Simulated scan of single mutants.
Amino acid sequence: MMSGIGTSAGSHRLWSHRSYRARWPLKLWLLMFQAITMNGSALSYARDHRTHHKYSDTAGDPKNPTRGLFYSHIGWWLLKKTDAVIEGGRQLDFSDLYRERLVYLQHKYYLPIFIIFGVLIPWSIPVFGWNEDPWMSFGLVVVLRITIVLHHLFTVNSLAHYFGYRPYDFRIRPADHRFVNYISFGEGIHNYHHVFPYDYRINERSQWELFNPPGMFIQLNRLIGLAYDLKVASPSVIAGVVRRRGVQPIRDQKRSLTFRICNALFDWTVGILVGAWAAYPLIAFKLLTGRTIG
Rank of each mutant, 00 (worst) to 15 (best):
R145N: 12
A22V: 10
R90H: 15
V85R: 04
H177C: 11
H193D: 07
S8Y: 07
Y165D: 15
L69W: 14
R243N: 13
L150R: 12
A84F: 05
I224E: 03
G118N: 05
V274Y: 06
F70W: 15
G225A: 12
L282E: 06
A227H: 01
R178F: 07
Y200C: 03
L287T: 09
L220D: 01
V274A: 14
V237D: 11
G10M: 09
A239S: 12
L140C: 07
L287G: 02
G139W: 11
M2P: 00
P65C: 05
F285V: 01
G290A: 12
H177A: 10
R171I: 01
S158L: 02
R166P: 07
A264L: 04
W123M: 07
F179E: 10
R21N: 13
F117V: 03
V237N: 07
G118M: 04
G88D: 05
H107P: 01
I183R: 04
T66D: 14
Y182M: 07
L288F: 14
G68K: 10
V195L: 06
H17G: 04
R205P: 00
R251H: 05
Y165N: 12
I272L: 14
R171M: 04
A227R: 02
W130S: 05
V85S: 05
I146D: 01
H177W: 10
G68I: 06
I125R: 04
G275W: 08
G275Y: 09
T58L: 10
G139E: 08
